[in-house]
């Protein structure tokens, strides 16, 4: 499981201790579900964020 406190410090977020104490269990739970599921994701599965390269009508 990621060390959320270390991550917060490394990102310079300066989160208050009481916030971190409440955040950690929630993120642990979410991350556990994610990790379990990701293990079964096929290598070729692409994220569902569609990027389309379209013609540029203003291009010369």
């Amino acid at each position: 499981m990621p060390d959320w406190r270390m991550l917060a410090a490394a990102r310079g977020l300066a989160l208050p201790e009481e916030d971190l104490a409440r955040i950690e269990p929630v993120l642990d739970e979410l991350h556990a579900v994610l990790a379990e599921r990701v293990a079964a994701v096929p290598l070729t599965a692409e994220p569902l964020i569609s990027f389309r390269c379209e013609t540029d009508e203003d291009a010369l």
């Binding site: 990621p2 959320w4 977020l13 916030d19 955040i23 929630v26 993120l27 990701v38 569902l48």
Partner: peptide, 27 residues
């Protein structure tokens, strides 16, 4: 709301991309 925003700031880009890959499979 502040706690939710702080949770989001701690997730990694990899976590987010994995979630979007799972989103496709789950759909």
């Amino acid at each position: 709301v502040r706690l939710l925003l702080e949770q989001g700031l701690l997730l990694s880009a990899t976590d987010y991309i994995h979630a979007q890959r799972l989103r496709r499979l789950m759909r």
